[in-house]
Nucleic acid binder design. Structure first.
Lengths: 304, 304
DNA sequence: AATCATGTATAAATTAAATTTATGTAAATA
DNA sequence: TATTTACATAAATTTAATTTATACATGATT
């Protein structure tokens, strides 16, 4: 039978998609992984990884194998937690992946309420764009993810946390208009690709204007976009709760109504995640923290 | 973390209640177990076994630990089965413990129908008296047990397979009587202690006679008892289905009616046993093999 | 009480396994 | 073609597991 060490090596290579990076995570050298995984493959009778691709990937046997290895690893982890609990020094650690345009306002909120709500849970937050976040949750690199819905596929348990409007920020705009058809004549500042809010911007703006040729400059974060709009005119789209934490910006916000453009923020995790009790509690805290008006008509934009 | 080998050593010591016997089962020497288990105890931080008792027993920490070790072991076994299935050489092996007074007639029946009903399952049968059988199932030495009900406690899943009458075998008795009050004057041949049918015999006979002093000779199996009754007079009690397979004996059988003394034969296993699908199938085959008249009044005698 | 049998622990020697350092090789990139 | 990147292989080293031999404790036997 293969050893527990070999199982951990395989899991790390699967997660890192690289022998070298996995070796670092395991605190061993790369040849150790090469040899031990080769040995495991011999013991099991089939190759686990396909080394011919770049990055490395699982063979079809490997695909079948992984859940069984995770199963073993999980039972070891449960033993470990049991021992830690005995010693009274167990603190559950939850790794949460959040898309950047949400984390920018959600992290401060979580920080504020965390100790009161979860005195015995350690939180680690990673900022990841949607595609990478989906992958990270699938590969158990993080325990749960928070992104703009809908969550694709069937492999995750998910849960809508709240909907938030996407507001139009146009600092140099002179009108007082609620519904802003003048948008057509203004320059839109877009997030760089990889951000789902960019897609939602494009989806929304496409309704208002066609001259995509003018979208020639892209910012990596909302901060930058607001600055550009402020200095050089034009407009950008900002999520409701990001605006809420920066009252200065609110004066120059236009809103599109009936329906207002919006996105739904969802939490998701692998169905058998052992930390799901606390994960669910986090969802509930967020639901409470971002309550819904519920009567407003929203146009929920897909992220893809 | 403790190693898989250490876990297997601990499980074997738990099951054998002896380092020496466990060492044999593990194909290593006794010092290997002493050292590896000591090491495991150091790693975990608490002693697992109490060596001061005879036989050895678990500490309270050990009691808490075992289910977690079984959990790990089970996940390894699932991987093993997966690999064997890949190779097409997986035959599930079910170890069945049966009490002697049932196995004497049930084993031939199982043998007869096995290949037709379970072409892909290997059956191993062990004959065990009730108390040892309960222990063996609890310690996973066998997958399922078949005994006379009721199954004590709450830790097992159980299922009544059938009820069977306990018939009175009195070869030298001259009457033709159905209800035999003459029993009082006859010598009862009892099974030796440890057999649950012995208890049931005593329970039943106690109603008919009090002179326990005369029960001075005990046989280890039904074969012997019938022989003694045949040669030296007196009577013994025989289970219905044992009689059924020995037609010669049936002529000299008396029956007590309304209610007829009987015992219920039950199957039981640990709730999470991974082979429970096939175990359930075995139960069903036995239910079919020993169908119930269902209209007869029975006096189900407890085994204890 | 001395002896023996049974059962686990310990020590030293041996064997086996995992790991590292150093080097090789193949594919992709410049 | 040279260079980089990434995994494989070989030999040496370190670490871990196992065995043999023996000690120690306990309960039974004479």
């Amino acid at each position: 039978m293969i050893s527990h060490a070999q199982i951990q090596y395989i899991i790390h290579v699967y997660q890192e998609k690289s022998f070298q990076k996995a070796a670092d995570k395991c605190f061993v050298t790369q040849p150790t992984l090469s040899m031990q995984i080769k040995k495991a493959e011999q013991t099991l009778g089939y190759p686990i990884f396909n080394r011919d691709t770049n990055p490395i990937c699982l063979t079809s046997f490997g695909e079948e194998l992984m859940p069984r290895l995770f199963d073993i690893e999980e039972s070891f982890q449960k033993l470990d937690i049991f021992i830690q609990q005995k010693e009274g020094k167990y603190q559950e650690e939850i790794k949460l992946g959040i898309i950047p345009t949400v984390s920018i306002y959600m992290v401060p909120y979580l920080y504020k309420v965390w100790d009161k709500e979860f005195p015995n849970v350690n939180l680690k937050i990673v900022e990841l764009p949607t595609e990478k976040l989906l992958q990270a949750v699938g590969e158990k690199k993080v325990d749960a993810g928070i992104m703009a819905g809908p969550v694709p596929g069937e492999r995750f348990d998910d849960c809508i946390l709240f909907n938030e409007e996407i507001k139009i920020y146009a600092p140099q705009y002179e009108g007082n208009g609620v519904l802003a058809d003048d948008l057509k004549n203004m320059k839109p500042w877009l997030l760089s690709k990889g951000n789902c809010l960019r897609t939602q911007m494009i989806n929304f703006c496409a309704l208002k204007q066609e001259e995509k040729s003018s979208w020639d400059y892209e910012g990596g974060n909302l901060e930058l976009l607001t600055k550009m709009a402020k200095l050089h005119g034009g407009f950008t789209l900002l999520p409701e709760y990001y605006l809420q934490m920066q009252p200065k910006l609110q004066k120059t916000v236009l809103t599109a109504e009936n329906p207002a453009p919006a996105r739904s923020i969802v939490g998701f995790h692998l169905p058998r995640n052992t930390k799901r009790v606390n994960i669910q509690k986090i969802y509930n805290v967020l639901k409470k923290g971002y309550p819904q008006p519920s009567d407003k008509k929203l146009n929920i934009l897909p992220w893809k």
